[in-house]
Simulated scan of single mutants.
Amino acid sequence: MESTFVSATILLILITDPLGNIPLFIAALKQVKPERRRLVIYRECLIAFCVLLAFMFGGQTFLKVMHLTDESLSVAGGVILFLIAIKMIFPGEGGALGSDKVSGEPFIVPIAIPLIAGPSAMATVLLMATREPDRMLEWVGALTITMLVTTVVFLFSTRLQKLLGEQAITALERLMGLVLAAISIEMLLGGIAAYIRQFG
């Protein structure tokens, strides 16, 4: 499946799922003083951005060291995205924060990692960079826009939750999950097809 700048941006926004993470984000910041929340948001989003950039630029080296192929990464990425999509469509108890109660000011965990830069986001940027390294500037641009969207959503998270309501946010998350499920199947089939072609 050939990605474009727009499709890559949409995919990353779907995976980071800022709207669906609003309730978890608000819970994580409950113990933070109101005057420090904006600073924490900027800091955590910047950390997540740097982590994903590291995975993007270190992708080729990582694959060589681990002796992995693009096809295996594509299949694994498709499986991970499908599991994330299923969780978005059929949300259960808990979430990215687990059952642990967040106390004090969060630093890196749980907002930057895994709320924003989770395993699925890391696998996706790594896959994008290794499959088409000559378009790295586009992938960095897509990631930058995704992080800007995430930052804006988190800055206005309380207002958005009041404006949309929990039911609307849940409906949007399930719709995004459905789209992500289709993308994950396409990625999975693409990886399997590429692997089979090696023996053709």
Rank of each mutant, 00 (worst) to 15 (best):
I111R: 02
K101C: 05
T124A: 10
V79K: 02
V79H: 04
K64N: 13
L83S: 04
S72V: 14
L83V: 06
T69H: 01
F107L: 12
L126A: 15
I116K: 01
I108F: 15
F82Q: 03
D100F: 12
P114W: 07
L81K: 03
I111D: 01
A117S: 15
P110W: 09
E105W: 10
A123V: 11
I113W: 03
A123Q: 05
A121F: 00
V79L: 10
E71C: 10
G94S: 14
T124F: 14
E93P: 03
F82W: 11
G104R: 07
M88T: 00
G104F: 14
T124D: 05
G118Y: 04
E93Y: 08
S120G: 15
V65D: 08
S120R: 04
F62Q: 00
V102G: 00
I84Y: 02
F90E: 03
L73A: 01
L63I: 11
S72Q: 11
P91W: 08
S103A: 14
A96W: 15
T124L: 08
L97N: 13
M122W: 03
D70I: 11
I84L: 12
I111L: 05
L73I: 06
L73E: 01
S74R: 15
A123W: 00
P106W: 06
G104Q: 14
A112D: 12
G78K: 07
A117V: 07
K64P: 04
P110N: 06
K101L: 13
G78R: 07
L73F: 02
L115H: 05
V102N: 06
A96Q: 08
K101G: 14
V109I: 13
G98H: 06
V79C: 11
E71S: 12
G104K: 09
A121R: 00
S99E: 10
I89A: 01
L127N: 14
M122V: 09
T61K: 07
P119E: 11
E71Y: 11
I108E: 08
G92H: 06
L81D: 01
L81G: 05
A123T: 15
M88A: 07
V102L: 09
F107R: 06
A112T: 12
V65N: 10
P91F: 00
I80N: 08
A121K: 01
I108D: 11
T69W: 03
I111K: 00
L68T: 02
V65M: 14
I86Y: 15
V75Y: 07
E93K: 10
A123Y: 00
L81A: 04
M66R: 12
E93T: 13
G78W: 07
A76F: 13
G104P: 13
I111N: 01
K64F: 12
G78Y: 10
L68S: 12
A85Y: 08
F90Q: 10
V109H: 14
S103W: 06
E71F: 09
D100V: 13
S74F: 01
P91Q: 06
M122I: 05
V102F: 02
I116N: 00
L68W: 07
L68P: 00
P114M: 06
F62V: 09
L115V: 08
L81P: 00
P106K: 04
P91I: 02
A117W: 02
T61F: 13
H67A: 08
A123E: 07
T61L: 13
A112Q: 10
V65H: 08
